[in-house]
Computed example of a mutant assay.
Amino acid sequence: MTRIVNCVKLGVATEGLDEPPFPGDKGMEIFENVSKQAWKDWLGKQTMLINEYKLASFDPKARSFLADERRKFLFEGNNEMPEGYVPPKD
């Protein structure tokens, strides 16, 4: 059965995630308030940020940076791109 959430990112009631994306309070907050589509959009943005800034997943500063960017993207409506970012050509 499809679970519906009122997605804070998209501003509509739509299909929610099947499970929290990670353990803890933040994972539960995302599970309860973010749609599958918004989470997919975030994963794309996260990949772009990792590539643009050459981040290492094991670096605590990189993890903190990504957590902050995730909060801004999903809950604050911020979708700014890194300075000088040029999207890939199709």
Rank of each mutant, 00 (worst) to 15 (best):
K36R: 14
P88V: 00
M48A: 05
A13N: 14
P20W: 03
E76K: 14
G16D: 08
L10G: 10
P21C: 07
T47W: 11
A38G: 03
K36E: 14
F65V: 06
P23E: 12
S57R: 07
L55P: 03
K89T: 05
K9T: 13
T47I: 03
R70A: 09
A38E: 05
I50Y: 03
R70F: 02
I4K: 14
F65D: 09
A56M: 11
G77Y: 07
R3M: 05
G24L: 09
K26F: 14
P87T: 04
T14P: 04
W39A: 02
N78Y: 04
A62E: 06
S57I: 10
G16S: 08
N79D: 15
A62K: 01
F31R: 06
D59V: 07
V12M: 10
G16K: 03
P23S: 09
A62L: 05
R71Y: 11
E32C: 07
D25I: 13
A62W: 01
M81P: 00
C7S: 10
P23L: 05
G24K: 06
N79L: 06
M81S: 09
M81L: 11
R71M: 09
L66K: 08
L74G: 01
K45C: 10
T47F: 08
L17R: 04
K61D: 14
D68Y: 12
P23I: 03
G27T: 03
K72R: 15
T2N: 10
F65Y: 14
R63S: 13
N33D: 09
L74M: 05
L43T: 15
L66Y: 06
L10Y: 09
M81N: 12
G11S: 08
M48I: 03
S57M: 15
L17P: 07
A38N: 05
E19G: 03
G77K: 06
P82K: 00
E69D: 06
E80M: 11
S64K: 15
A13C: 11
K72Q: 13
D18M: 00
N78K: 14
M81G: 00
K36S: 12
W39K: 04
R70P: 01
W39G: 00
F75V: 03
N33P: 03
L66P: 05
F65M: 12
N33T: 14
E19A: 14
G44M: 01
F58H: 14
N78F: 03
P60M: 10
E15T: 11
